[in-house]
Each structure stands twice: as structure tokens, then as C-alpha cells.
Amino acid sequence: MFLKRILLGIALLSGLQLSATVLASQSEMSFEQYLDGLRLQALKEGISQGFVDKSFANIKLFKKALVNDQELAPQTLEHYLPSLVSDALVEQSRALYKANKAEFDRLGKQYQVQPRFVIALWGVTSSLGLDVGDYPVLTVVASNAYRGDNEAFYRKEFIAGLKILQSSDIEFSALKSNWSGKMGYPHFSPTDYASYAQDGNGDGQIDIWTNLSDAFASTANYLKQLGWNDEGTWGRQVQVPKDISQDLVGLATQKPFLQWQELGVRRFDGSDLPKVKGMQVSLIMPDGITGRKYLVYDNYRALLKWHSSDYFALSLTYLSERIKYPAID
């Protein structure tokens, strides 16, 4: 039995197709058998035997684990934006900024990301930290990998989580996530945490779950690495002629404001577009000609690198505008 489990683990690690007459398929494999493959992969990745044994002793099948983390696309932005970005969320976001303004402004200047965008990102991802979860992330990602949907992704996250624990003072139970393996205020994956997490208050620890300074610095650092430029904003809602060519719509087309002005595009209030030379912007219409239209800038493209969804990015920017106006002293 033990030899069979080891062979199963080796086959998982190498990616070989196994004959059903020789070994059980992954769907027939027990969670314990699946963990044998993860153990072998962890050892191959340079994680010590002692640490593997200690960590795996704590891993149980997470029965609430889900692997289908797909968005249910809402019908239109007109309905989606006010439902996701409620007045309550706006007030909570503004209150969070006001209560921590000096610290958030300091970190915003240090990482060159405006605080309102960091707070807005928290709002649409983790509900300002309410959805950070209380499950050991290794248990969650191992269980999600075992269930098979997007297995390669979750296996990678599992190894990243192991490496975080081995190289830090974080305890197994303290590396927490929600049901999908997303951690802390910014909903980082373990690989995100390893790449972008920052010590925002200089205490030698990185806590993106309860420490607002660390969570802010880590989120801002990620945005900066994605190409964020705090000298500009994300874009603006506009009006367009009803007969505008669909060939002009989409991020693949970039034109200066002057050319969009000549094509009949105007600010949402009908006034002329900004007279900014050299800046290349794109026209998007997520709901088509009858829906909302936007001219979007490079910072918008950075948000799409975080999560490739216009609805996600526009929800974030909508909340950021509600945080900005009226101004918070």
C-alpha cells in the first residue's frame, strides 16, 4: 500500500498519464494519497524533510473548499456598480481613510500610489478586510488542488505557502485565507505574498490580515510593480456619438485626447476633453453602445493586470471616486 502511494505521488509530480489498470485515477485517489505527491514535490523544491513532516501533519481535507471561483457576470454596469459599491461601503471606506489618513498618506507617498485606490481595492476584494477568512491556507490550497480544477495553480500556491512558513516566523495556523486561498486585506495568494508583501510600519513583521500599515504597503507595492503612476488617474466616463466605429473600441486602440475630441467624444457633462498632449488613451464600452463609456489610461491597464475584468476595474475606480469626493480633510 505504501509503495502504491509513493508511485501515485511520483506520477503526479512528473505529470505522467497513468493507466487505470495500474493505478487509481486522481478522482479515485484519497486525499492522503494526493498529499504524498505534494510531499515529493515539496522535497524536490528544496523544503526540508523535517519541515515537510511538521507541516503535513496539520493538513486536513477542507470540506468547504471550492475551486470554481468564476464571476457571475452581472447584466449591466448600471445595476452592478451600485450593488457592489453600496453607500454603506462608501461610508466605511471614507471612515477608514479618515481614521488613518496621516499613515495612509505617508505610505502613499512612499510607494507612489494614491491611498484612495488602495482602500478601494480592499473594498471590492475583501470588503475592507471582512472577507479575509480564518482557514489555514495550506489546507485550503491543497484541498482545492486535490479537487482538480486549476490543479497546477493550486499546487504552485501550496509550495509557495510552504516556503513562506519555512522562511518566516509565521505559524501554520496564522497563515490564513478565505475558502479560495486568498489572504488578508488585498486578497493575496501565497505567491503574491512572497513577491509583494511589505513591512509597512518597520516592526520586522509582515501582517496583511490585521496590520493596516503592512496591508497598505503590500497592496501599494503590488500596484506599483504592475505599472501604477501616481501622477495620473485611471480614466473618465465620457459621451460618444451613437455611430462611432466599433473598430475604435477596446484597449488595442490608443489615441491622444485631441483625436478623440475630433471623433466626437466628450466628457460626461458634454464639455471638451482635457488638452493633454502626448497621452495615449483608449475607449471602452463594456456594455456596448447603450451602456457606460470610458476613456481609460495606463493606470486602468495596471488594474486589469491585478484582475482581468472590466467590471472589477470599474467597480474599484467607481469606489475610488466616491472616496475622493467630497474631499476628506
Rank of each mutant, 00 (worst) to 15 (best):
I208D: 00
N178S: 04
A252I: 09
R5E: 15
D105Q: 13
W234A: 07
S218L: 00
Q41W: 14
D230R: 01
S27F: 06
M285D: 04
L61E: 13
P241D: 10
K109N: 13
Q33F: 06
D87E: 15
Y193D: 02
D149V: 14
Q70F: 09
E151T: 15
L273H: 10
P274S: 09
R236S: 13
M183Y: 01
Q49I: 10
K101W: 07
L38R: 04
G181F: 04
L128A: 06
W179V: 10
G200T: 04
K54Y: 12
Q239M: 06
Y300H: 08
M29Y: 03
L263D: 03
G123C: 03
V85H: 10
E321L: 13
L35S: 01
T253Q: 15
M1C: 12
H307P: 06
F117Y: 06
Q92Y: 03
L251G: 10
E157I: 10
V22W: 12
M285H: 00
D105S: 14
Y325Q: 12
T317G: 14
E45A: 14
I6S: 06
Y185M: 01
R155V: 15
A42I: 06
Q225G: 10
L3S: 13
L43A: 13
L96M: 13
R39S: 08
R155P: 12
D247K: 15
L89G: 06
L162H: 09
V296S: 05
Y154K: 02
K275T: 09
D149K: 15
P74R: 00
H307A: 11
L121V: 01
F257T: 02
S189K: 11
E171R: 13
Q259H: 13
A42N: 07
P274Q: 05
P241T: 05
V52G: 10
E28Q: 15
T253R: 07
S177F: 04
L162S: 11
L251V: 11
N211C: 07
G235Y: 02
L251A: 10
E321H: 09
R292N: 14
D192V: 00
D134N: 15
L128E: 08
K4A: 07
G235W: 02
L138P: 03
G202V: 01
Q205V: 14
P190C: 04
L303N: 02
P82G: 08
Y193V: 01
Y311Q: 06
K156V: 08
S320N: 07
S25A: 12
A120L: 06
G37F: 03
A252F: 08
T76P: 11
V118D: 01
R266S: 11
L165I: 05
L175C: 12
L72E: 13
P286C: 11
S309T: 01
I59K: 05
F188W: 00
K98R: 14
D199M: 03
W122A: 02
F172A: 08
W228L: 05
L23I: 14
A252K: 15
K101H: 11
D243L: 08
S320A: 15
R155S: 14
K109V: 09
V67M: 08
H79I: 09
K324M: 09
L96T: 03
R322T: 03
Q239C: 09
S30Y: 09
S218A: 05
